[in-house]
């Protein structure tokens, strides 16, 4: 993941609430086993609506409440990122979607509705992650972001590498659990399965 500091440029606007991940990318385009190439399927079906006018190719997308609701598919931020978006400025964001965005270097920003509208109306914006501001038409709007997430995005850090710094704590936790009377189920001790492929299938 590339570090993020400044995101600057044109704003695309999708002024509606509850844009779910099936609108962002329909499930039938999630069959690829690679992480790339999902951009061409962004808003694939939704954009056929007669009133659709979201420009693709700009770095910033403004939208309404509960953007990214529904599925946990990371294909949604992958598609947005692949299509060139670098930041989503919404009135509110669905939990899993917002978390997924931070893993792929797509900056999720929540602002009050009137500020989102002002940014959309300006048509251009400059986002400064370190300062936590969105500047549009001369006004600067401050946004909140989890400090750990901010640090990770500013430095383009690998989450797994950071967690493995706690390796000793993980091992200690596992040893403690393994020593308890009831350590929890193991998928490796499930009884053997039977293959159906040799029996006739109805």
């Amino acid at each position: 993941m590339d570090p993020i500091s400044i995101i600057e440029g044109r704003v695309s606007d999708l002024p509606r609430d509850d844009v779910d991940t099936d609108q962002i990318i329909p499930a039938r385009f999630m069959k690829r086993v690679e992480r790339t190439g999902f951009g061409e399927f962004l808003f694939h079906d939704a954009k056929e609506a007669p009133d659709w006018n979201v420009e693709v190719g700009n770095p910033i997308l403004t939208t309404g409440a509960n953007f990214g609701s529904g599925s946990s598919r990371e294909h949604a931020p992958w598609a947005l990122e692949d299509a060139g978006f670098r930041a989503i400025i919404a009135v509110s964001l669905a939990d899993i979607f917002a978390s997924n965005c931070t893993k792929v270097g797509l900056l999720p920003i929540v602002l009050p509705e009137e500020q989102v509208r002002a940014v959309a109306a300006a048509g251009d914006a400059r986002i400064d992650l370190d300062a936590q501001t969105v500047t549009a038409a001369g006004e600067a709007y401050r946004f909140e972001i989890d400090p750990d997430t901010k640090h990770r995005l500013l430095n383009g850090l690998d989450d797994i590498g950071l967690t493995l710094n706690d390796e000793a704590a993980i091992t200690a936790y596992e040893e403690r659990r393994a020593a308890s009377t009831f350590p929890g189920p193991s998928s490796l001790s499930l009884p053997p399965e039977t293959s159906l492929s040799t029996t006739p299938v109805a």
Partner: peptide, 14 residues
């Protein structure tokens, strides 16, 4: 969770 987190849990169980 999303796919990046799937990778994270596979690697760290956390």
């Amino acid at each position: 969770i999303g796919t990046s987190e799937v990778e994270h849990v596979l690697a760290t169980q956390c």
